[in-house]
Amino acid sequence: MLEYLLDLAAATLRLSTPLIFAAMGGLISERSGVINIALEGKMVVGAFAAAVVTLSTGSPWVGLIGGGLAGVLLAALYGVAVLPLKANQIVAGTGINMLAFGIPPFVAKILYDVTGSTPAISLAERFSVAPMVLAVFLPLVIWSFLSHTRGGLWLQFAGEHPSALAAAGVNVRRIRWASVLTAGFLAGVGGATLSIFLSSAYSRNMTSGRGFIALAALILGKWRPLPVLFACLFFGLADAVQMRLQGIQMDGFGKVPVQFIQILPYMITIVVLAGFVGRSRAPRALGNS
């Protein structure tokens, strides 16, 4: 029994890792006032770029950074659309998600002459635990940055009361740019952990909605680093339990439908959003850039 629980805890932590990186990225962006529904897209390009870079350099660390930088590139495009050009952030985010799904097959066809997945990455070139450790400490780092540094305070003001920040002589636009790009990096790294930590290659649709689960965790955790971490762990647990329940018979109930466990995180998010279990308040200036 103890062994089973330890095993489950380890699986939870592993499966939460990509969610934590992506959700923290979303947190940085949204706390500065920029909506981020394109976490999914950034994870897709991050997962793909990390696999490609790891395959060509043989180093997962370089791959992880490559994944992050791919996220930054996509975030830069998003930034141009929503900051200087003032495109609607939700529409532009949707566009970025669409774009991200088109990029890996396009590039993979040129590089490897396949459109589905990259070649497999050998076990020696993959991570075993490192990203998991980073993921646990990341929310602590972000929490102390937000509440104990001047930059963190500026970031919060950019999201809550940008005109006060501007009156104090700080460039709100610059803060938001920094936040959007950082969010791209973190979401890209989150995607990278899918291809070079949780599995051994990039494959089509491997993010399977995790970017949106990360968004759900962000709302559930009310845009605060530590609660968001717990929300990610909870969704990771749901994922781990779902994998273990597949095909298991329960007394008097028959097979547990996997689909019900898969939709659980989304149901919980709706219930929370509807205010049935405590309200979740977004940063005040979210979406008005």
């Binding site: 495009l77 659309a81 929503v82 003032k86 609607n88 529409v91 566009g95 669409m98 774009l99 088109g102």
Partner: peptide, 17 residues
């Protein structure tokens, strides 16, 4: 997917512009 995304971004940016 890429072309659709480009169209979305261009149209959205045009509206913002």
């Amino acid at each position: 997917a890429i072309i659709q995304a480009m169209v979305v971004l261009a149209v959205a940016a045009e509206a913002g512009f």
